[in-house]
Design a protein around this nucleic acid. Sequence first.
DNA 1: TTGTAATCC
Length: 701
Amino acid sequence: MSRFWKPGTEKPRLVEDEEGGVLFFAASQSSSSSSGYGYASLEKQRQRLPVYKYRTAILYLVETHATTVVVGETGSGKTTQIPQQYLMKRVQYLKEAGWAEGGRMIACTQPRRLAVQSVAARVSEEMGVRLGEEVGYTIRFEDITNPELTRIKFLTDGVLLREMMDDPLLSKYSVIMVDEAHERSLSTDILLGLLKKIQRRRPELRLVISSATIEAKSMASFFTARRHGRNDEEHGPKKEPAILSVEGRGFNVEISYVEEPVSDYIRAAVSTVISINDGEPMGDILVFLTGQDDIDAAIQLLTEDSDSRKKGLIVLPLYSGLTRADQDLVFTPTPRGKRKVIISTNIAETSLTLEGVVYVVDCGFSKQVFYNPVADIENLVVAPISRASARQRAGRAGRVRPGKCYRLYTEEYFMNEMPADGIPEMQRANLVSCVIQLKALGIDNILGFDWPSSPSPESLIRALEVLYSLGVIDDDVKLTSPTGFQVAEIPLDPMLSKMILASNDYGCSEEIITIAAVLSVQSIWFSVRGAQKESDEAKLRFAAAEGDHVTFLNVYKGFIGSGKSSNWCHKNHVNFHAMKKVEEIRQQLRRVAQRLGIALKSCEGDTQVVRKAITAGFFANACRLEAFSHNGMYKTMRGSQEVYIHPSSVLFRVNPKWIIFHSIVSTDRQYMRNVISIDPSWLREAAPQFYQQQTINPRPL
DNA sequence: TTGTAATCC
C-alpha cells in the first residue's frame, strides 16, 4: 500500500541525526498552555496537547517508517492522539482513493488494565463515539469491542500476547502502538521481541513504540534490522526507525539533594516533610518510600510530631494492599488551609496520578523482585532505584505548577553511582510462563531469541527444565501434544495449568479450578494489622487437616452457601473483593477447561484426589520434615534447601512429614506459603523421571 | 511465630 502523505501539504521539518534516525524538532515556537483545562471544549483541550502540533509529522513518519519511536512525557497526549489522528487520516485517504476500508484495526497496548479503560474512554469521548463501537478495549474478563465497528482497540499487552496464539501475525491490525515501553515489563518485552519478528513477515505493518525517557535510542536500535537492506522508498517503508520527540507538558521541578548520605531515610523523609510544611507555600507533598512497614513507621513519626498535627497536615498512606476506600482518600481535594502528605510506594510512580502535588520527597529506593535461578526462588528486596525512576518521581511534583523535589541522597550519588536505567523485569523474573508462551508461538530457539534485553541463560535453562519435568516440552525442547499445547492455552502459571489438566484424570476439576483461582489472587483473607487474633480464629473455622488448599475449598463452599454475601465475608474475615475475583477467574478457567475437553466434575469431598492433582503440578515443590527437627525445619527434595512452614498456614506447627508448597517468601528464613500434606508415593506417580526411588527413601544421616 | 513493590493472561 502506498503512503498517504501528500506532497504540497504542510510538511514537517525532519533532521537526520548522527545515528541515522530521524529527529523531528518542534515546528512551532508558540507555547501551548499547560495549565488546567478549565471549561474549554474537548477539541480545544486537544489542540493544546503538545502532540497535536506534531500530528502531520507523526502521520508522515508512521507511513514512511516500519517503526516509529515516540518519546514524550506522560501528559503529552501521545497515547490518546496518535491512534485517532492516524485512523482519521487513514480512513480519509482510503475513502479518497476510492478503496473499501481494509477492516484492519489500530491496536494500542498498555501495561495496566486501568490505563486501558481510562484511555479508551477518553478517546471515544474525544471522537464523539460510543465506547465499544469505533473505539473499544479489551482486558481480561472484559471485551468492550464490536468486530464489525471497532477501528481503534486499546488492550493490555498481556491480552495482545494471548491474541497471538490464535493469530500469530496479528493480521487484524495495521498499526500497533506499544505504550509505556520504557517500563520494560515482562509482557512488553516479549511483545517487542515478537513484533520485531512479525515485521519481517508483514512489511505493511506499522509499529509505534512509545517511551518516556532517552531509552528511545536503544528501542530504535533494537528495531533496526541487523543487515540493512536497500531502502527503496517506492516499494516499502524505511527500515530504520524514526524517532519523534514530543515535548512534555510538565512544569519545572527544582531538585535538591542532601549534602551527606542519610543513614535512616524514614526519619530523613519525615523531617523533610516537616520542614516543607514550615517553610514552603501551600501544596501537597508526595513521599516515596519502599513498602507498608516504611509507610507505617513514617506515619507514626509524623503523627507523634505535635507541630505537624497543629499545622493541619493530613497524612495518608498509599499502597496497593489498601482497600479501595482507603486508596480513594488520596484523591479527595485538600481542604483550604490544609496540606496533604501522601506517603506512598512505587504505585504513585507509574500506576496512578495525584493532582495537587507540588513537593516530592524521594528516598531513592524501591522493593524489587530478583529471581535466583539456581535456588529457583524469588526474593523481594529493597534496592536502589534508577535515574530514570528518580526523574519520573520528580516529575510528579510538576503537574499543576512548578514544584520541588527533595532527594534523600547526594548529588554525587545520583550522578556517579545511581544506575541509569532499571533492570528489565525479563532479567529479574522467573521465566517459566514467558518460555511456554514463546514455545506455543512456535519459537523454537528460545536461547537465540532476539530479546530487547536478553535474560540470563541460567534463568532460561531453569525454565526449560521445569517445563520438561512437567512433560510440557520433550527431549527436542518442543511443546508436547496435547499436554504442552493445553498447558499453554490455560492463562495461568504452567504448574497451575498442569494441575488443572491432571484434575481431569482424578475427577476433581471443579475443586482444582477453585484452588487455582484462589491461588491467583493475593489473599482471600481480610487482614487488618493488629487484629490477627480474630483473623486467625476465623481461619480456624475453615481449617482442614490436609492443608491450605483444602481450607480454601471450605471457604469457597461457605461463600457460595451464603449466596456470595459480603456480610458473610465480613463476619468470617474473608476479603469479599478477592472472592469476587476468584469467581471471575474460576468462570474463565471453567470455560477454557471445557474448550480443552476437560470434564467439569466434582470429587464430592475426596481430598486425596485433590491432593494428587496438586502433586501432579507441584511435585517439584515437595519437602520432607527433617528427622529430629525440633523447630519444624524442612528440606526441599530438589536442592535440599532449608525451608519452614509460614505461620499463616493452617499446617504451621502441625508439621506433617511430607508436604508440597505453592510458593516461598524469603525473609530471615525461607517460608513456604500455602502448603498441603501428601503421601510420598504420589511423587513417583506424578513424576517418575523426576523422583528416582532412592531420592525418596530417607538417606542414612 | 509472620508478612503483602507493582503488574498481567
